[in-house]
Design a protein around this nucleic acid. Structure first.
Lengths: 240, 240
DNA sequence: GGATATTTATTGGTCCGACCAATGGAGTCA
DNA sequence: TGACTCCATTGGTCGGACCAATAAATATCC
């Protein structure tokens, strides 16, 4: 059958510079902490203008691949990546209408169910203490005016729970979804945080008892009611 | 208590331009498909040089927020985001040593378990047909020389399974993890694909019968053996 | 001598003004 | 009518200048 040819676009010099540096990172030739030559040198060895090099570096910086630093011993240093970019991606996809709120909350619920099960098996005393401390903090903030703070503490609970799986990727995935959720929460505002806190204390009891099914049931119920409430709120707002 | 002040760095003009455009997208003022003013105009209204504007646009382009297009009716168009960026983020995090192979495969296994359960409940005949067709294709390719092709077909199986959840976010998450897995597979090479195909046929039978527990068992066993094999292979290679 | 201020070299950040390259529409000619 | 040519618009590149941050080297002062 006839192959569908790729549209091919790669004519920009700055993209070629970008690609070449990326390849050196992928191949392991450039590693975290290494320093790239100065822009002027790069420009010369690539045979392009400094502007082209800068655009490439700007792209790399945006992806967390390099971080730029001015000054005498500055330069373009290979970074360590940025887990926050995953959340940014989702945020953008949502803002641009490529994913729906429903899909996000549904996925989050499934993810959190899994996380709860794993956390039940793996959570250390330290993890449980951190979760408890978080709920305590939330309770302290009940009377606070700044509801952004309150929301952030509640969001953090989910991230702490993910951390109890002791799996870095899971922490990142959950963190990414919660980043988007934070936007909603800030926009939607005013939850019944007192009820949430009570639910979380019950949840933590189940978790401490290593009763996975009961913990999942508690979590599911809470999240689903929250989802319904968000959905109602967002309906009243202009869709973008 | 004393607040820990943020380090603050935002002095670059190009970053301020970037931020302002991003905010207009976030606020919904700029939507998918809209066109930004020409670079020269932007530069004038921001009161900065064209170079600064270009660097900002380059950043936006990298994130899939805008796509640049030369020519008479060209310009910077607001895009729709790029789901592939999530996979890129993980790839970078791995390459730069911020996440381990173990964490990735473990998370993938958990994710795939969830996906299997959901797919069992939601997969349509069309989904099942697509999965079957994929395995057929894999069988046809058994004798092929190009092992990259064979691997890609095998990878695609997991993406198709994720699609059977009918949740776009889940598809993206799985797709992201599989992107990284593809790199490994290409590097590690030569699997016993004939065995994999047999396992998948058994798996599909369980899935068609809507027997979630059995399907999960089949999937888990296969993935775990795969994981062990990868790990052994990568040990022989220089770690980066 | 040692602490402090100053200079200086390096490197990213910005600007300007020019020209090239792609592209689609208007105008032209057969 | 239809194919061709020109041209205005807009991104892509260039180079060469200057500013700003930074740390090391140097000079200065007690």
């Amino acid at each position: 059958m006839s192959q569908a040819f790729a549209p091919l676009k790669r004519n920009r010099l700055s993209d070629q510079v970008l690609t070449q540096i990326q390849e050196r990172i992928a191949s392991g030739e450039l590693r975290s902490g290494d320093k790239l030559p100065p822009e002027r040198e790069l420009a010369e060895s690539f045979g392009v203008s400094r502007g082209a090099v800068r655009e490439a570096l700007r792209s790399l910086e945006r992806t967390g691949l390099v971080s730029l630093q001015a000054g005498a011993h500055g330069g373009a240093f290979i970074g360590q990546g940025d887990p926050g970019l995953i959340g940014d991606s989702f945020r953008n996809l949502y803002q641009l209408g490529s994913v729906s709120l429903d899909a996000l909350t549904e996925a989050r619920l499934w993810l959190e169910t899994t996380i709860t099960r794993i956390a039940c098996a793996r959570a250390t005393d330290k993890d449980l203490a951190a979760l408890t401390a978080n709920v305590d903090e939330a309770e302290r903030l009940l009377l606070s005016k700044r509801y952004e703070d309150k929301i952030d503490v509640h969001i953090e609970f989910h991230n702490l729970l993910a951390r109890a799986t002791h799996n870095a990727v899971m922490v990142m995935l959950m963190g990414a979804l919660m980043d988007v959720m934070r936007d909603f929460a800030h926009a939607a505002g005013g939850e019944r945080h007192d009820l949430t806190i009570k639910a979380r204390r019950r949840f933590l009891a189940k978790l401490s008892a290593r009763d996975a099914d009961a913990a999942v049931a508690e979590m599911t119920e809470h999240l689903e009611s929250l989802h319904v409430r968000y959905r109602d709120r967002m309906k009243e707002r202009p869709q973008r």
